[in-house]
Write a protein that binds this DNA or RNA. Sequence first.
DNA 1: ACCTGAACACCGTTCAAGT
DNA 2: ACCTGAACACCGTTCAAGT
Lengths: 248, 248
Amino acid sequence: MSEGLPPITPAQVVDAAVRLTVRHGIDGWTVRALAQDLGVAQAVVYHHVGDRQQVVYAVASQVVDQIPVPAADRPWREWFGALLADVRKVTLHHPGVARHLVVLGPLAGAGRIVRPGMDVLTAAGFAEDAMMIYNYLSNTALSLIAVEDERNKDPDERMRRARELADLAQDPDEGLSEMGEWLASRAVSIDQLRAADAHNYRFSVERALDGAEARLKVVRKRTARRAVRLERRSTRATGSKLSTKGQE
Amino acid sequence: MSEGLPPITPAQVVDAAVRLTVRHGIDGWTVRALAQDLGVAQAVVYHHVGDRQQVVYAVASQVVDQIPVPAADRPWREWFGALLADVRKVTLHHPGVARHLVVLGPLAGAGRIVRPGMDVLTAAGFAEDAMMIYNYLSNTALSLIAVEDERNKDPDERMRRARELADLAQDPDEGLSEMGEWLASRAVSIDQLRAADAHNYRFSVERALDGAEARLKVVRKRTARRAVRLERRSTRATGSKLSTKGQE
DNA sequence: ACCTGAACACCGTTCAAGT
DNA sequence: ACCTGAACACCGTTCAAGT
């Protein structure tokens, strides 16, 4: 240990942090544990990468880099459906990262995904709503995963709570009776709870896409009206009366 | 202090925790700070309420109790629109609580809101999808607020990041250029960022309601088909041919 | 420049001891 | 039963000192 061993690189630190995150979640390791995993003193982490927050940021960036980008020629709904299915796959393997992704917003390097996403929405006709819709869809997906992560932090505790809630919901006075039956049938194993999470994710993402689709119809009408108005104004300006028949 | 002063009650502990939460957020106080606020030793909190998690749970319950329930006779979309606007108002005054509400799911006592909500959805025709839709809507709303809370934890840090992202997004190579202009125009004051949050909340909730509405149409058709099939079967069983003209 | 070891200022939680 | 004071086992972060 005394000789000049090859010095540790920032990349090594971040890679170790990613490995620990896969195994224990982003909140499941400490700076001490990370240093020990690397076989160095804690201060080494601060020297090469920075404080815990900066390590987390680096881990989040690497997770984003693992998300595949759907082919640009697919229809917008398919494109986002594919993206958000992959987002879940990748982030769920790095528990706790999804939460940071929503909170931090688009990281450096996220343009790889954001640009084609915005293009696909603009091509579909979302016009000036494209960005709001992009945020809406990615927020919905990442928030759902963030909640899943948090609930799965302690599987035993989750099972306990599910059973507790199932019992509580049996009581007709509580007004949760539909929820009671539903939970009682699922709260028998952690695998079933997770399967319910997966189903809930797909359902919610589809509803979010429905919401975007409904908006698209409104925006398209607005755009069409605006085009007519512009057209009318320009024809009036040139003195032409050719297109006035569409006026009333 | 040595005489038998009136002993502290659990309610006093929780009330103090709520006050601290309003002022500093749920993550902004420690058990030590709570005890000091009450003028007692830390162990008193554990004696009357339990560990930190249980205090948080009690605070969350009290926040839920403050949410007003819309009149049961309003149409489902209005009902949820009103509810979710009030949810934001109440939870935003208790920073960090929204996150616990999503993660914990319906608390004891939430039946006050869940039951009329389910009734309103069932009356609208959501049938067996009512619960999924209820979860979808409340999850969407609470998750958005949870993200807002987290972003506002450190306003300075948030401003810094917004400006940073605005600069980054100016770079055409990053593929965030629409976002760059948008952010650059808003990242001048924290109030403008918060106004953008409010706008984003309303927009997203409206999209989520659009998504539910689209689903409603599908479910209604399915229910109608099923009714026809049942009707047909019963008429066939009784030998009647009265309603067969709707067959094809 | 890189790394160590130790310290600092915090946490949540527990528990023997007092009244 | 209620409360105190002190301790325990952790954190993230910093920093003088070594090579």
